[in-house]
Design a protein around this nucleic acid. Structure first.
Lengths: 340, 340
DNA sequence: TTGAAAGCGCTAACAG
DNA sequence: CTGTTAGCGCTTTCAA
């Protein structure tokens, strides 16, 4: 009585579609999942009903009934660190063909309010995890869950595979580029974290190999523009004969550029600057920064590959894949001017 | 036989917790959801079992059984546009106290592979939606779903509320700042999209009010650094008497800075530059950009407020909230040099 | 205050 | 090729 006059505000279910198409709900499920063994007539009937009703399968129900969520959780550090943009692209492109989607969670943002972003992902029962953060000891994940740590080598996450670029090598490339240009007074701006440490090591090694003294200075301990600025100011003031600076990342390099400008040092004429990461800011007209491409998109692609393999039942190789970084020469480096 | 020797790799369920704590599963559910009507003894027993087993409630099951997912979907344009970082922060802070979490999806990233990111959110049965993108006609959302369009005024999303800053006013503030400084040759760098158009309108209005001729030039149609660079080059070459530039956003302003540098124009001595958004790059040492604070964090906070109200059963006001932008004066603007 | 029971919407064996 | 039947793990009445 008046039943069909009731406006159902709830989203349509698979039952509604089945009824509307005049088939059973399993048939609807089959069509939606692209089964080949469904007659064309039924298929179109179902598809039309789906369209007509504006039906969207409930992810919750699918996740609960099926064994998998088809989603990979990605934990990132901070939305401001643009290096993960390419990482996400690589991941996305590697995952999508396998019907896997990605969900991103920010570490710092969630830190204030919720527990660890990992908790959310585990509650969500993701099929795999990408940790694009400096791993911490608190990161315990269930055994058997495919996890890859991306961009950081020091994986303290048990059972995780690692995909990263070879920071030591990249730092060497940057330093050798500067040395090859004829620089001798080369300083390094470092920050906190494992990647920064490896880069500092690579810098020191390359300098030592050339018989040069490696000067390394930190800002306030982090790797922000402000840190780069502070470190560069410190370096430039303490060692005026500096003609080149290698920063632990592009953001710090940006700060170094500012410090140089303030001191009237033109880049690259009076000061060469090299960054690291080849993030979007490096290629801007304003910076034209010589940098090291850490190949983040490929890191994402390889991470995706590993995840897909593990999800497909492959073994946990536990191996670390190190991609070779590449030097990208732009306009912020040049040979030093002849010195007295 | 040997049954208990089998290692159960699946995550523990509420049943496991109940058994381990010696209570019924409903009791576990009550404890987890913080019901006051549970004896202290049982509560601790349950909590201990949870801890012991490493239990995490299944989001899928909770969503399916309950009526709500307690998550808000946020659709953004592009991870590179940093303006949404503050938006997210404001949202997060406004939502968290109400037990609501946020899920972020990128429009452009998903565009390649999946359907619309909205589809994902609707499949997920989010409790609300924040659209931080230029809304398009394709954005059909179920009636009754709380939706707020953030940062864009032209909401073609039916039934959505709008929270944004007053772009026209902001542009006027920027332009009047320049005029007040004594500039007369002021150009505007514009891009595509509704916000850019409103900013261009505000610029034109302020210029007209001062009896000045508004020159507006676009780059390649978008609002990237490259567009800002191209537009600035065009402007500076066509109108050499230009002493100030107002860009549609900080990124474009960065491009303008590059164009100025290339032409040997020092900022702010020979060219003043104003951006818009007060994004993280504006406050760097390198840019020290005078800009307009579009108050993104507050936009997020207000959006959160509206969402919470609607979810709590409040009415869809359908209203548009316009926040007043504020001028942030930094080092990229100054009075023009005395001209012949 | 606690337990039992009925689904939520879907997938995945099964039978036909 | 198509329909039937069990659950997936949780929330939520409803009794006890």
């Amino acid at each position: 009585m008046g039943d069909n006059a009731v406006v159902n505000t709830r989203p349509p279910t698979i039952y509604d579609v089945a009824r509307s198409a005049g088939v059973s709900k399993s048939l609807v499920s089959l069509v939606l999942r692209g089964s080949p063994s469904v007659s064309e007539a039924r298929r179109t009937a179902v598809l039309e009903a789906v369209e007509r009703l504006g039906y969207r399968p409930s992810q919750a129900a699918a996740a609960l009934a099926g064994a998998t969520t088809r989603t990979i959780g990605v934990v990132i550090d901070d939305w401001r660190n643009l290096w993960f943009v390419e990482l996400l692209r690589g991941l996305q492109e590697g995952l999508a063909p396998h019907g896997l989607r990605i969900a991103v969670a920010d570490h710092t943002l969630n830190a204030h309010v919720e527990a660890h972003p990992l908790d959310g992902f585990l509650s969500m029962r993701v099929d795999g995890l990408v940790i694009a953060t400096e791993p911490t000891g608190a990161m315990r994940v269930p055994e058997g869950l495919p996890v890859v740590v991306a961009g950081h080598r020091e994986g303290v996450v048990p059972g995780a595979e690692v995909v990263a670029n070879d920071d030591r090598l990249g730092a060497r490339l940057a330093t050798e580029h500067l040395i090859g240009l004829g620089h001798r007074g080369i300083g390094h701006l470092t920050g906190g974290g494992g990647a920064a440490r490896l880069r500092a090591e690579g810098f020191a090694a390359a300098m030592a190999a050339a018989g040069l003294e490696p000067r390394t200075v930190a800002g306030h301990g982090a790797t922000t523009e402000e840190d780069g600025y502070a470190a560069a100011v410190r370096l430039l003031d303490a060692v005026p004969e500096t003609t080149a600076v290698f920063a632990a990342n592009d953001t710090m390099a940006m700060g170094a550029l500012a410090a140089a400008g303030e001191r009237g040092l033109r880049v690259p004429q009076e000061l060469s600057v090299v960054g690291y990461d080849d993030s979007p800011i490096a290629s801007t007209h304003l910076l034209r920064l010589t940098t090291v491409d850490s190949r983040n998109a490929e890191i994402g692609a390889v991470a995706a590959e590993r995840l897909v393999a593990r999800i497909g039942g492959g073994p946990d190789t536990g191996a670390a894949v190190l991609l070779e970084p590449e030097l990208v020469v732009r306009g912020s480096t040049a040979a030093p001017r002849a010195t007295g």
